[in-house]
Design a protein around this nucleic acid. Sequence first.
DNA 1: CTGAAAGCGCTTACAG
DNA 2: CTGAAAGCGCTTACAG
Lengths: 337, 337
Amino acid sequence: MKSKITLKELAKLLNVSVSTVSKALHDSSEISPKTAERVKELAKLHNYRPNPVAVNLKKSKTGTIGVVIPNISNSFFARVLSGMEAEAQKHDQQVITYISNESLDREKQICDMLTSGLVDGVLIAVSEETQKKREYDHLFALLDYDIPVVIYDRINIGLPADKIGVDDEKSFYDATKFFRGKGLEKIGLASAIHHVGIGQLRIKGYKKAMPGEDDLMMVTSTKSADLKEKLRDLLTSNKVEALLCTDFESSILATRVAYEEKIKIPKDLKLLGYISREVAAYLTPSISYIEQHPQELGAASVEILNNRLEGKLKPGIFEERIIATTLVHLESTGFDI
Amino acid sequence: MKSKITLKELAKLLNVSVSTVSKALHDSSEISPKTAERVKELAKLHNYRPNPVAVNLKKSKTGTIGVVIPNISNSFFARVLSGMEAEAQKHDQQVITYISNESLDREKQICDMLTSGLVDGVLIAVSEETQKKREYDHLFALLDYDIPVVIYDRINIGLPADKIGVDDEKSFYDATKFFRGKGLEKIGLASAIHHVGIGQLRIKGYKKAMPGEDDLMMVTSTKSADLKEKLRDLLTSNKVEALLCTDFESSILATRVAYEEKIKIPKDLKLLGYISREVAAYLTPSISYIEQHPQELGAASVEILNNRLEGKLKPGIFEERIIATTLVHLESTGFDI
DNA sequence: CTGAAAGCGCTTACAG
DNA sequence: CTGAAAGCGCTTACAG
């Protein structure tokens, strides 16, 4: 049991002052090489580590960043977190994780705590409920307290803060165009997240790439059973040639319906999902998907926050960065690319 | 922009001493009701929040707990984290997340940082590499520094620390017994994690429930393509009636092979997987699975840590808690229960 | 009932 | 080149 040694104790053992020890350990030019060496030697011997809490108090910072995640079971967010952690590590910052579970109340609680100065900055993807109710006071409170905020992923909210998101609209625009370029005309879309921002953007991209409103074959529902039946209707009655799914649930349900109705993928139906690689690649058949590069998004959001903290970003002018997506072809699109 | 107000500033505004303000805010009986009220009123007006860093320094603690996660993309761990966060919140503790990515080196780095006193305690599931190489010095270092450690999930390592895990062995023992109770005899097992502790325990449970070693039909491999072919051999040449899969990969590969070989699940083959609900329920057919209750595990590990921190646990005597699993029947086992 | 003082463990401008 | 002093923002035993 080594029980941490302090500067003061080190100083006493060396018969020098606390300031001398501190400076020596920081390679200050004020200290003689001889003393510096003595100090470092003893520090190493006792495995001295400065108390981070004291250092932070002195420096008026916390060394931590707060990350608010709506739903950690969603592997997209889990991987975003992973990217954030990796980037934070590089800057010797600790990541404090908060999970809102898509609840506005929980999100308010979290932000309220955060105003007390637990963290140097906040990275947040707002909950679905927050988006729906458009209540952002708790976020403004953070800004009032001069705590920098970076909004990630769910960025279409009116808040004067830096933002970083995924190119949701373009991803589906490109995908739809891709199918059309392959000569397909009956292109459908399924969504269980049509009520939230990112879902709407994906749908928008799809619509833009389709010639006329009349041809749109869209099924949406937030209720699983409901969406499934709508999908069954769509896939059996219409001759849909390709289907774009905006989320995990609709992607899986579409696979399921195709299986039940003996619709062959990709022969009779090309399928594209917004699901993570781990699931996509293992499904039968494997599902082509939009890769959102969550780790990059996470790393970049920490980067932006740090630029803001270091004053590299102009006050009052906010960055908005978009990460490009990639269409990854597996079996369900049936094209060799 | 409210820029935080301090005790000192509050004191000046009220023409009292800093100590009086501090005591008033803590409902000390030393303070007159009148003064207490004046103080609280102004504090509220200015939305005073004590600086947590200063409080922590004074109290010689950090108010945080460090969580080391091997792989956050694994939804099991993501949900464990969620349980930890929820429980920590109740105790006003912050969760600092570290991701080792199954790397021993990274884990060492993390533990080394942690010895500096960034957290009050550590929750860790060691990386696969750590298990394989059995290098635990970095964990002993934590203990040397008097930082309590709770080992979660991957608990079969020789370390004098509190542990909390899943009943891996019993889960597969019970599942095997269940199939046998239904009159099935040819029960196989597939594993991609036979080389790590939890995999071995699950296999052990399976073996215990099987009558003789001769009947064991096991396929194992850490390489996906390899395991798939072994599964194909097993499922086509033997008349396997039921298959237990120890992990996500083997579960999915088995579904896949069955599909390719036109083996009907559950009619020709009952399948049981060690996968998370989100994936299990959505697969076609849905896969019966072992529910590990990850959130409970997460919450309980924080609970144990706090008991340790509060001295409720005897020094030198360590708790080892096991969370019971549940077998959840979906389509792939084909029994109505 | 109130306040001065010490101290948590550091850093750094300043004096010598 | 070294050290005394002030201070980061708080808490609390002690004196008055």
